[in-house]
Nucleic acid binder design. Structure first.
Lengths: 116, 116
DNA sequence: CCTAGGTACTCTGCATAACTAACTACCACT
DNA sequence: AGTGGTAGTTAGTTATGCAGAGTACCTAGG
């Protein structure tokens, strides 16, 4: 989706993945596939795996190794209490930002109506 | 506002500043002050100036030096045609991302209603 | 047997962008 | 001379996503 999206995903991708895990536990390959289904077609596998390791190190998720029928064992991640709090914080930050940006956008629309 | 906001601003701050300039031309110090007024209380001056230089190098804005009564000359930035296109693209990218994230959030709310 | 391909995860190096923190410069007032 | 508000610059750090290659496990076809 281009450079703009890449930069915008910094900081939001983490929340997106945590939100996916809040619905139900999942493993990396599955999360990547789900992101692709939801329209994030350019998100790279390596990015997701790195992110998962990061949030694991921060203690936001619990991990369980589960054997797979079709390949190497899966690392199934699930959101824990700490991750839940962090996700709440994320919603707060996101909400704040989204509100300001929406206001700016509407302000421009109104300006253009009157102005040009 | 903390680390989450810092990361989330990557990619969006640029759009925010371009949007401010779309309303009317402004200089760096003024933009910083306006951002602070709008609730981005922790945004650092250096960040804004660096961003302005970046978008100038990319040709998204025109610059004019205007003497100030109260200090060094101001660099007044105004959005040009190229910047306008880029801002349109930004709205598209932002809209896409905001839509997915909002859907995820509502999905979680519904899941929690039924589930726990 | 061994090659191709799907599943699943790891790793190194790179680019970008925001932050920290200091600095320069101009002006007014005391 | 010193303080403080205005206005912009710079060097170094950190965090995160991408590119691209590699490892490992399993199944099916030639």
């Amino acid at each position: 989706m281009g450079k703009q999206m890449t930069e915008m995903l910094k900081g939001t991708l983490e929340g997106i993945v945590l939100a996916i895990l809040a619905v139900q536990p999942a493993y990396g390959y599955e999360i990547t596939a789900r992101l692709r289904d939801q329209g994030f077609s350019d998100i790279v596998e390596g990015t997701v795996y790195a992110l998962l390791i990061r949030i694991e190190k921060r203690g936001l998720v619990d991990v369980e190794k589960v054997p797979s029928e079709k390949g190497p064992p899966r690392k199934v991640y699930s959101l824990n209490a700490s991750g839940g709090e962090y996700l709440e914080e994320f919603w707060g930050t996101w909400g704040f930002l989204a509100e300001r940006i929406d206001k700016l956008q509407h302000h421009i629309e109104n300006t253009q109506e009157k102005g040009e």
